[in-house]
Design a protein around this nucleic acid. Structure first.
Lengths: 217, 217
DNA sequence: CCATTTCTGTGTCGTTCGATACAGAAAGAG
DNA sequence: CTCTTTCTGTATCGAACGACACAGAAATGG
């Protein structure tokens, strides 16, 4: 279908096409789809619900996103682009591993309870997604890979801390990283069940007490 | 439909009826349904998948369980009856609050990675259930209530410990209980993503280090 | 102006969904 | 045996599902 002859636009970067222009805001529609998938999950969200929330007809949806799976994949990417920095922004630049982990957990507590839109669901879309268990292997790999990236980021930061002497060489870095990710994921579960920001922050502080006890803060 | 005239059987306790006997094992069929709901969730599991796994026709399913929601509710009850004791059994009789919490987390790590059947899903069915977000409010209340019971059990045990002097009177019991439940829920997320029993136990031990640091173990 | 390209709205495709009607089979009650 | 009751298997219901055909509308290129 596409790429017949030399493509005038090598990618999607210049959206200035030739035919009738799109009548809806692609990003705004994607945001609405993201909210629906986020709240109800993949299987429980129907195309008619999506088109109603996005304010478009189903042919426009399929022309713009390809399929329901494609729309979910884009909604997931949209979610990560929009929220990942709020959780990992201070982690990256923190001077010590301990400060990085504390920033991660505290920023997670803040981001999970921050209301950016009135109909935003509670809990992280990546952490709570069950799309992999619903039979859609490819989408499941997307969310699992996103979750694995978090673990890797923490483990790499701890390895650096071990090399720099902040952590003892005998520290069990994978176990520490998994502990941090366990608490971070648990915060999403607590948020889904109605926990408030101070409650989440108290959990994060208790988790840091565990860090100090084991690592020696 | 039912209860026309004085019921000869006041409940479902005597299954000895009058007509043609049921040709399938109700509990075995319920176990199969539980596995499917557990693995794929409510919305992504269809009646035809259920009847195929249970080895019965759809009229038998509806006669025995009423509806898809009713079947899920019974599967959830079946799950709790079968697995709750493995997680909370040692918690109840532990001599101290610390021992109770440690038993809870260590037994959770063990139960989550114990393979009782070859096709058992990974992670706790209650913790990972998203049925409440899929639009089924009543079932959502069931799983949320089950999760809340865990928090209450820990909080009550900690209150007793405070009354007995094990915990200082200034201890923030709800925060401690929420911390424990956060880690416990996080263990289910880790299990779903492939963590092993030793890995979960290492997380549990790190969480107990946090307990000791804050409570003074 | 016209040709080409792309998007929109209506309508609908075939499938699958959850849920039953119905007739026959298998048990107890008399 | 006959009557009643309950379960089983076939066959199917209306509704909703994901996805698309088609014609018309709205833009650019010449």
């Amino acid at each position: 279908m596409q790429n017949s002859g030399p493509a005038p636009s090598p990618g999607d970067l210049p959206p200035r096409g030739r035919g009738r222009p799109r009548a809806f805001d692609r990003d705004a529609a994607l945001t609405q789809a993201m909210h629906l998938f986020w709240r109800k999950g993949f299987a429980a969200t129907s195309i008619s619900e999506l088109t109603a929330a996005m304010g478009i007809g189903s042919p426009s949806l399929y022309a713009a996103f390809g399929s329901k799976e494609g729309l979910y994949a884009e909604a997931l990417r949209h979610y990560r682009e929009q929220y990942e920095a709020r959780v990992w922004g201070n982690f990256t630049g923190a001077p010590t591993a301990r400060a990085a982990v504390e920033a991660l957990l505290m920023d997670t507590a803040a981001a999970l309870t921050e209301v950016c839109a009135p109909d935003e669901p509670r809990g992280c879309m990546v952490t709570l997604s069950a799309v992999g268990s619903e039979g859609h292997t490819e989408l499941g790999e997307c969310v699992r890979a996103a979750r694995a990236r978090g673990f890797e980021a923490v483990a790499e930061r701890l390895s650096r801390a071990a090399a720099e002497g902040e952590l003892s060489a005998s520290a069990d870095i994978p176990a520490l990283a998994r502990y941090v990710m366990t608490v971070q994921g648990g915060l999403s579960l607590q948020t889904r069940d109605g926990a408030s920001r101070p409650e989440l922050e108290a959990v994060a502080q208790l988790a840091m007490a565990g860090w100090d006890a084991r690592v020696g803060g």
